[in-house]
């Protein structure tokens, strides 16, 4: 029974480690292969953070079994990393936008569509109201 439990825990730890390393590798492949910076920042900020989370969970399980008491120190790194990863990603995108303002998303379609839709919806209503008013009067 103890032998079985040890083997099962080993299996869980090894699966978490290989899965986390695969996530980190996928994020790094995205970093190396995508063409645009805004596509490139997508991979590391999500996949790599998840990969490190898996590795930290495996480490927590392993040292809990090794020391006999709950090892909560890995949660410290995990919480810190999950808080700081979006902040650094936000700062990097702001840096990239400041370096190349031409790559910022174009505001023209929304600004052009907004007045046309309001005038298109406003003109018939005013037209019908001005048409209706003489016929009523």
């Amino acid at each position: 029974m103890t032998e079985f439990a040890t083997t099962a825990t080993d299996l869980v730890i090894a699966t978490l480690l290989v899965g986390g390393a695969s996530f980190a590798l996928i994020g790094s492949i995205g970093l190396a292969r995508f063409r645009d910076f805004y596509k490139r920042i997508h991979g590391p900020t999500k996949a790599t953070t998840l990969g490190v989370g898996c590795a930290l969970l495996a480490s927590s399980i392993f040292f809990t079994r090794l020391q006999g008491s709950f090892s909560s120190r890995e949660l410290l790194i995990a919480v810190f990393l999950f808080i700081t990863a979006p902040i650094s990603a936000h700062l990097l995108v702001k840096t990239a936008l400041a370096e190349d303002p031409a790559s910022s998303p174009p505001p023209q379609p929304a600004a052009a569509q907004d007045p046309s839709s309001t005038t298109a919806s406003a003109v018939p209503s005013t037209g019908t109201s001005t048409v209706k008013a003489p016929t009523a009067g």
Binding site: G20, A21, A24, G27, S28, L31, F37, R40, I41, P44, T48, T49, G51, V52, A55, I77, L81, A85, S88, L92, T95, A96, E99, D100
Partner: peptide
């Protein structure tokens, strides 16, 4: 190509070294 790319690569590098 840009400095932001290099900083992002350095950021990913330290996260991977953590794992």
């Amino acid at each position: 190509p840009s400095v932001a790319d290099r900083v992002l690569a350095l950021d990913t590098l330290y996260v991977n070294s953590l794992a």
